[in-house]
Amino acid sequence: MNYTLDFTPVIEGLPSLLTACLGTFTLAICGMLLATVIGIGGVVLRQSKIAPLRWLVIVFVELIRNTPFLVQIFFIYFALPLTGIRLDPTPTAIIALGINGGAYAIEIIRGGVQSISKGQMEAGLALGLHKGQVFRLIILKPALRAIFPSLTSQFVLLTLTTSIASAISAYELTSVSQRIESDSFRSFEVYFTVTIFYLVISWLMMRLFALFSARYFAYPVK
């Protein structure tokens, strides 16, 4: 154990590590937004009267949840160009994160919707609202509130999963730290620092969700 710690390369690389955190945030936030859209849209299609649409959602969820994220992101980055769709690493990572997170979000949000009593739906319909309006205006918010803790953990996980985007050299914290590590060979110092960074990022995300929840779900329940 005559390894002497030397944080100089890390300190010199600090500005680029910090800006890389912005890259991580960008991937995470955009990925979450996309995942939310897919999650809510998927729940709507999952309840559709048209059976093939329901099957489509079931197949999508099973496909995504039972394959590795790394393979999914490689598929979009390396395999899709063969069909003429060529995307840069950052959009690729956002789409992959959105799709992956979306598949989990569908199942989570669906649980929330099912937890809302049938009486809410009936009260809306009896007032002359359409099914779509009932879902949007009456069911959705209480349903999201019911599952918000699960959605938060899923999205913190999504935030950490951004590090896998380093495999296609997307601009984010892990790929930048890899570069500093391979230039300096200071593996311990670099990954120790990055670990702390990720902890802080996770914590910030949780705070963000807690703040959102406190504002958006402020109504009292029995």
Partner: peptide, 8 residues
Amino acid sequence: QFNLFPHL
């Protein structure tokens, strides 16, 4: 069961 909308 009244069925008021709790979030409104």
